[in-house]
Amino acid sequence: MDVETSSNPQGLMSVEAVQKALNRSRASVYRYANTDPENSNLPYDPQKLNPELRLDKDDPLLFHPNEVARFAKDVLGIKQVTIEIQQPAETVTHELLRAILAELQSIHELLKNPS
């Protein structure tokens, strides 16, 4: 089984991505998920697929790839589990942060070695 993250910035998997990775129906993924209509964040359950913490019960379910792999291996008994995390696309924010870091590093060097 290959687990591939969806395209969200945190690298978390949507229900559709989990469905595809586990080769199960959408209904099965919801049955596996550790959820409750009244409580958006239940305690960890090793026999369930545990979603990431949600701020609101209406937030979409998102799953960490490691949790999906653990569930597939430990609960479903899938022997071969591979996690492939794809890097998010380069954004203007990444470029700006990289430029800021380079500038800070050059300032640090100048302060460390005054001429």
Score class of each variant (00 low, 15 high):
residue 14 S to L: 10
residue 14 S to F: 02
residue 15 V to F: 00
residue 15 V to A: 01
residue 16 E to V: 01
residue 16 E to F: 03
residue 17 A to P: 06
residue 18 V to I: 07
residue 19 Q to L: 00
residue 19 Q to Y: 00
residue 19 Q to N: 04
residue 19 Q to F: 01
residue 20 K to E: 04
residue 21 A to E: 12
residue 22 L to R: 12
residue 22 L to E: 04
residue 24 R to P: 02
residue 25 S to A: 01
residue 25 S to V: 02
residue 28 S to A: 14
residue 28 S to T: 04
residue 28 S to G: 03
residue 28 S to M: 05
residue 30 Y to W: 04
residue 30 Y to C: 03
residue 33 A to Q: 01
residue 33 A to S: 12
residue 36 D to V: 06
residue 36 D to N: 13
residue 36 D to Q: 10
residue 37 P to A: 08
residue 40 S to L: 15
residue 43 P to N: 15
residue 44 Y to I: 06
residue 44 Y to C: 07
residue 44 Y to M: 08
residue 45 D to P: 05
residue 49 L to M: 02
residue 51 P to K: 08
residue 51 P to Y: 01
residue 52 E to F: 06
residue 53 L to R: 11
residue 56 D to K: 04
residue 57 K to M: 05
residue 57 K to Q: 05
residue 58 D to Q: 11
residue 59 D to T: 04
residue 61 L to E: 00
residue 63 F to W: 06
residue 63 F to H: 04
residue 63 F to I: 08
residue 66 N to D: 14
residue 68 V to N: 05
residue 69 A to P: 01
residue 71 F to V: 09
residue 72 A to G: 05
residue 73 K to E: 15
residue 73 K to G: 03
residue 73 K to V: 02
residue 73 K to W: 11
residue 73 K to Q: 13
residue 73 K to M: 15
residue 74 D to S: 10
residue 76 L to R: 12
residue 77 G to H: 10
residue 77 G to I: 05
residue 78 I to V: 11
residue 80 Q to Y: 09
residue 81 V to E: 06
residue 81 V to I: 13
residue 81 V to T: 06
residue 82 T to H: 12
residue 85 I to Y: 07
residue 86 Q to P: 14
residue 88 P to T: 09
residue 88 P to L: 03
residue 88 P to K: 05
residue 89 A to E: 14
residue 91 T to G: 14
residue 91 T to W: 07
residue 92 V to Q: 06
residue 93 T to D: 13
residue 95 E to L: 13
residue 96 L to N: 12
residue 96 L to T: 13
residue 96 L to G: 08
residue 97 L to K: 15
